[in-house]
Amino acid sequence: MEAKTGTWTEKKGLAQMLKGGVIMDVVNAEQAKIAEDAGACAVMALERVPADIRADGGVARMSDPDMILKIMDAVTIPVMAKCRIGHFVEAQILESIGVDYIDESEVLTPADEEHHILKHNFKVPFVCGCRNIGEALRRIGEGAAMIRTKGEAGTGDVVEAVRHARSVIGAIKQIQNMDDEELMTFAKNNGAPYELIKEVKTLGRMPVVNFAAGGVATPADAALMMQLGVDGVFVGSGIFKSGDPAKRAAAIVKSVTHYQDASILAEVSKNLGEAMVGRNAAQMPEAEKLAVRGW
């Protein structure tokens, strides 16, 4: 039999290998090494972490391919990179340089305010953000092989991550308890593909791996998301905007493995230095929220 590449099993499968792990934002090869040494299961290569994108304003785009390639050279773990929502040419470029996963991300400035990338057209797998089950299943319908709840990136405030994870996981429980007759109406009301709603009911979970993102800054935050039922966490600004990145990174890795063991969580939470300076997401004007990007 001829070997087949770029299959749905392959795309979903890499995300399954990342489960129980921490994916860290890094802006250069040196940070990527620190992340790998701390036990990150993958890194997200980008020019500026979300906290800086917020501070700088302007248009945030795909990173320089040369910078991404240097990070790919520096580490053996998978390297992800972000493209703008709907910017399928940025995605083509990222695929051509061989990144392991593309994040079609609301953290960058959207290139299309109506459409996302048709991700089935690519061999490289995609991860996309969501706030609720409808958004998650629309992205999977377009070919996303991994989902992350959005939270509010660059704030260090976990409240939005909790809101979005509870929304998605709550909806999955609700779907499981529905009669089959109710599924089409649920699909209609949530703007979700009917076939995928049926799949969620059969599986009793999301059809792809689901990580949490956006505001995770401490080991306790990471363990909170795991106990709520996500498969792993993304940490963006939370690590390299803190006082002691290497120590905090290793502590968050341990907290995701031992998320149910409070005595270990207490141990790894000790003496981590300063956490990133947070921004209260609830007091943020709607126009500044990144999570509302995505359709």
Partner: peptide, 8 residues
């Protein structure tokens, strides 16, 4: 890399 992952 991932794009070379395969089934056989």
């Amino acid at each position: 890399r991932q794009v070379d992952s395969f089934e056989t």
